[in-house]
């Protein structure tokens, strides 16, 4: 259960740390494969990072992620849905 929902910059920072991405700050438009060159381990690691933030992404949804923004939107959507007062 997420304690609080992270803003995009904090979320992106957690992703950069978890995936050891050496480039500068991540933009919402950064594409996971084409721009960040995440391989399949990295994409799995990405799911682990998101789950550590309290959100489980289903298999089918994970396959459709194209950008960092897609991951963030899914994170917020599921985090909100799991909040008791949402």
């Amino acid at each position: 259960m997420p304690a609080s929902i992270l803003d995009f910059d904090t979320f992106a920072h957690r992703l950069r740390q978890g995936l050891r991405i050496n480039s500068g700050p991540l933009s919402k438009n950064a594409r996971l494969v084409e721009d960040l060159r995440l391989d399949s381990f990295d994409l799995t690691e990405l799911l682990v990072v998101v789950e550590e933030l309290g959100v489980r992404v289903p298999e089918e949804t994970a396959e459709s992620f194209e950008t960092v923004g897609d991951v963030y939107i899914e994170y917020v959507r599921r985090a909100e849905a799991s909040e008791p007062d949402a």
Binding site: S40, L43, T44, E51, P58, E59, A62, E63
Partner: peptide, 9 residues
């Protein structure tokens, strides 16, 4: 691929 797509499984 099922583990890769959902490591908690």
């Amino acid at each position: 691929a099922r583990f890769i797509g959902s490591p908690a499984k």
